[in-house]
Amino acid sequence: MTATRTPDAPLDAWRAYAAAHERLVRHLAREITRETGLSDADYAVLEVLAEAPGGRLRSRELRLALEWEKSRLSHQTRRMEQRGLLGRETCEADGRSADVVITELGRAAAARARAVRETSLRALVVDTLGAERVEGLAETAELLAARLARAADDDPYCRAALAADD
């Protein structure tokens, strides 16, 4: 017997996905904190810097990559700098501004956290969904990311928020 589809079925599917995604995000954050002592925000900053050329970015570039407000990034990077996970160095390009730079301690912490996250994602997502569904998930994510990028480009409020505090 087939389930009757209601007009709300697509939104119900989205709500179910969003709820599962939120649980997954919270689970991963708890695991990383338990195993490495890093918060979710610490990990987000370290991941972006670890992938950046030379492990360094201007604050504005880091803020845009994370889609954070200037004050949030400032507070977060200050706390991480105090713990030795990152530092600030004179910008190589212009010599006037400062770059946020991942330290060796930060790089090691990011690598440990990435290993914890990947192990958990394999067990919880990849092994649960299987190769075909993971491929579908990747295609869906690409479609949504492209659509969201277009929506952000078309939205003057979004453009203004991203440009704020430069």
Rank of each mutant, 00 (worst) to 15 (best):
A152N: 11
R60S: 09
D154M: 02
D8V: 02
A146S: 09
D166E: 15
W14R: 12
E118H: 08
E22Q: 13
H21I: 07
A3W: 03
A163V: 07
R150C: 03
E81K: 13
E22T: 14
D165A: 14
D8Y: 08
A123E: 14
S74Y: 10
T128I: 03
G130S: 06
Y157P: 08
M1G: 15
R122M: 05
R117I: 05
L124H: 03
V25P: 11
A65M: 08
D40P: 09
S39D: 03
Q82K: 15
R72Y: 09
P156H: 00
R5C: 09
V100H: 03
L57S: 00
S97W: 05
A41N: 13
E135M: 11
D94R: 10
L66M: 08
R122S: 04
T140V: 07
R30I: 06
R72H: 12
E135N: 11
A9D: 15
L57I: 05
L46I: 03
Q76T: 15
A131K: 11
E142W: 04
L86T: 07
T36Q: 10
L86S: 07
T2P: 12
T119M: 00
A160W: 04
R107T: 09
D12V: 00
D127M: 09
M80C: 04
L57D: 02
E51N: 14
I102M: 01
A18T: 08
E31P: 06
S59E: 11
R58C: 11
L86P: 04
E67T: 14
A20V: 10
L11F: 15
R5Q: 07
T4R: 15
A160V: 07
P53L: 10
G84K: 07
G54D: 05
V134M: 13
E51I: 01
R159P: 05
A152E: 14
A52R: 05
E47S: 11
E89R: 15
M80S: 04
E69D: 13
L28V: 08
K70T: 04
R112T: 04
S71R: 15
C158M: 13
E142F: 03
H21G: 11
L143D: 15
H27C: 10
S59W: 01
G37A: 03
A109Q: 01
S59V: 08
T90S: 04
E104Y: 05
V125W: 06
A20Q: 11
R34I: 00
E92R: 14
G130N: 11
R150S: 11
R58V: 14
A16C: 11
E92W: 10
A161T: 00
G106E: 03
